[in-house]
C-alpha cells in the first residue's frame, strides 16, 4: 500500500512540481528509491554523496524524526505520512 510523501518547498521541483507524491516501500530508503525510479535526480537532492540525509533536509515519518529512527533504514508503516522538509535557515554571516 503506497504511503503519502509530502515535499514542501523547493523539493517539489524534484518530483515534477507536486508537493505530494505516493510511493511504495517499507523503509525510508525503499520509499526514496521508488520516488527516484519515477523522478530521477530526487535522491541526489535529499541524500549526500555518502547516502546520508543532507543536513538541510529533515524527514519525519509520522511524528518520528527519521535521523533518530535509523535513517534510510527507518521503518515506514503503511498508513504513515512522510514529510520531507527543507530547513528554514540562514543568517547574516
Amino acid at each position: 500500500m503506497p504511503v503519502t510523501v509530502r515535499l514542501p518547498g523547493a523539493l517539489r521541483d524534484a518530483v515534477g512540481g507536486d508537493n505530494k507524491v505516493s510511493a511504495d516501500g517499507r523503509t525510508l530508503g525503499e520509499i526514496f528509491a521508488d520516488i527516484e525510479r519515477r523522478h530521477p535526480g530526487f535522491r541526489e537532492r535529499v541524500l549526500d554523496e555518502n547516502g546520508r540525509l543532507r543536513t538541510y533536509v529533515n524527514v519525519y515519518i509520522g511524528e518520528a524524526d527519521a535521523r533518530q529512527s535509523g535513517g534510510l533504514d527507518a521503518p515506514v508503516p503503511a498508513d504513515a505520512e512522510v514529510m520531507v522538509i527543507p530547513a528554514m535557515a540562514g543568517g547574516w554571516r
Binding site: 518547498g9 523547493a10 538541510y56 530547513a87 540562514g90 543568517g91 547574516w92
Partner: peptide, 15 residues
C-alpha cells in the same frame, strides 16, 4: 538584505 548564507539556505521559492 539576504546574505550569501540566506541565499544558500533558502529552499522555499514560493514563499
Amino acid at each position: 538584505y539576504p546574505s550569501s548564507t540566506d541565499r544558500a539556505e533558502a529552499f522555499y521559492p514560493d514563499a
